[in-house]
Design a protein around this nucleic acid. Structure first.
Lengths: 334, 334
DNA sequence: CGATCACGTGGTATCGATTACAGGGGCGTA
DNA sequence: TACGCCCCTGTAATCGATACCACGTGATCG
């Protein structure tokens, strides 16, 4: 398996083959000015014949535009983020942009590394779901003057557009639904206190007037199981659990199953973030659903606007409560 | 919000600031040769002070190496591929490589587009999960002489390393398990006939000696529901369904639920690809589990070996049957 | 009929890095 | 003291494209 000669067809080869200058080839390829239809066809023929494809690196170096957006998400295997990534990519592609997806794995270090890598590659814009509040990476982005949009989560003093889903009302509704079903002591499997979503969801839910026990997880599956275990082992066990993220919800479910506890008879359950399989469980899980696809689309649009020199406003979508059954029935008592 | 001056710190600025030539700066940054410790520190100080970061585009243009791998997957929201993507990226990162993930959305057109885009950006190697058998994109990759490794699926005449999971034994085991549980007429929700995995899984399962009804889906959720509906509406309804992919399995489950059919009492079910939530269903779903993480790691390793000029062999991992309960109990009768 | 204009085209500088080559200074050795 | 070698450094070519500028030619207008 001798490696074929690496095809090094450059614009120069095309020019030579077509009997024109490289400048002309470039003009034809970029639809610039107006080369004669005849030269145009000659050049295109040469391109075709040689199978020429322009070197995007060289082009970007010269034009300082890569037609590429960077997307840093906190966890690729979290379906919530996977869906967002897909939506972002879809919207970007529709506008002729390509997306580089980087996976920070909920680690601040890796986030910084990736932000740097993406900046080094001169992405035209950056979309970030911050892993933590740590804003050290922000300075680098701002210094380089690269358009930035935050997605899902915020960081303390970011002066850039933010796209998120507001769950305040949904969380209030959830609190009401829990009360209506007779729950008072509720165990919360919260997100990390150093993430905006972790804090906010907890805070907003806390306004619901329930008696909360809180354990913080890290938005991942194992932490959900651990947190559930801790809450269930407490002396006055909560009558319901609320997981503030779908993966932690999954972990909690696993723990409940391990203990042979029935939902909602033994303990109620609600989860932030809907998943297609939640309705399939018995009972189907009550959730707070976020408009992930819209979030992704909106974020990409905002970033592209920013890249184009506009000043997009923040986007605030709304999450909504979907009552299914895992919290129990509302008792007749008001 | 006046946009700050886009920081254009180049190697020239660093050189000037440190009172050396650009060549020296480059040498320091690349650990080349041996600049005096003193100049070295002076250069590094300048780098630090100016917050200089090399332009990866320019560097790659010159060195013809991007330290980047391209990964084209068929569907980012399919957790199977998401997990593979994560594993690939993890392994690549450990070797100092960055991964550009492209999502073909099970479309051959989009796959071709992305392969081109990635080649244009001069990735050092390409990892592809082909959406279909259509091998038109292959020629372009080979012509450019870019190292290529196929992942999960094959295409007809690819002369490159392939990393996959062999499910022949698992499918045979599944057939046995179904028979043992008293199933004879089995409905198969197969993958597209123009994908290697679609064909192979069906073919291998067909060797199990069951009476099969086959409907082809497209590896996505909706098609799973449609196929299930079709199979269940047939005059002699199968007593069990087998979905050859987790998303189609999800769709099938939804359809069963819609019809109020109980698993496994009314109809048995098994799915190819395990998912963390399958054990949580009642009854838990019997699956064929693939070693996704290992596949991703192996694929990245193979590609990196190829990039390094070695000749990695094909990797054949094995999928295995995990019997849970959704196919019913084995009856005493042999 | 001569001057001007416009258009198509080629030459060449440039983007920001790497690297081959050449030169200068210090040191060791004869 | 003089020669030579080696090490460090700078100069400049180069990667592959784009874009500014200038030039030649054919058309137009006065």
């Amino acid at each position: 398996m001798i490696e074929g000669v690496r095809s090094v067809t450059t614009i120069k080869d095309v020019a030579q083959h077509a009997g024109v200058s490289t400048a002309t080839v470039s003009r034809v390829l970029n639809g610039h000015a107006a080369p004669t239809p005849e030269t145009r066809t000659r050049v295109l023929a040469a391109v075709e014949e040689l199978g020429y494809r322009p070197n995007a690196l060289a082009r970007s170096l010269r034009t300082t535009s890569t037609k590429t957006l960077g997307l840093v998400i906190s966890d690729l295997v979290n379906p919530f983020f996977a869906e967002i990534a897909r939506a972002v990519e879809e919207e970007a592609r529709a506008h002729g942009y390509c997306v580089i997806v980087a996976n920070a794995d909920e680690s601040a270090d890796q986030l910084l590394t990736y932000v740097r890598t993406l900046l080094d590659r001169r992405v035209d814009g950056l979309l970030v779901c911050p892993a933590t509040d740590d804003p050290s990476w922000l300075a680098e982005v701002e210094q380089r003057g690269v358009p930035l949009v935050l997605l899902d989560r915020t960081v303390p003093d970011a002066s850039c557009p933010v796209v998120r889903a507001d769950g305040a009302q949904a969380l209030a509704d959830l609190a009401e639904a829990l009360k209506a079903a007779g729950h008072q002591r509720v165990g919360v499997i919260a997100g990390p206190p150093d993430t905006s979503t972790g804090r906010e969801r907890l805070e907003q839910f806390a306004r619901g007037g329930l008696d909360l026990r809180v354990v913080h997880g890290d938005f991942r599956r194992e932490s959900g199981a651990r947190a559930a275990a801790e809450l269930l082992d407490a002396p006055d066990r909560p009558t319901a659990l609320v997981a503030m993220d779908n993966l932690m919800g999954l972990g909690a479910l696993e723990e409940l199953r391990r203990r042979g506890l029935t939902v909602p008879a033994d303990v109620g359950l609600a989860v932030y973030d809907d998943q297609p399989w939640f309705p399939l469980l018995d009972p189907p899980i009550t959730v707070i659903a976020q408009p992930t696809v819209e979030m992704g689309h909106a974020a990409a649009r905002s970033l592209l606007a920013l890249v184009a020199g506009e000043q997009p406003a923040d986007v605030q979508l709304t999450a909504r409560l979907v009552v299914r059954g895992s919290c129990g029935e509302a008792t007749g008592a008001a």
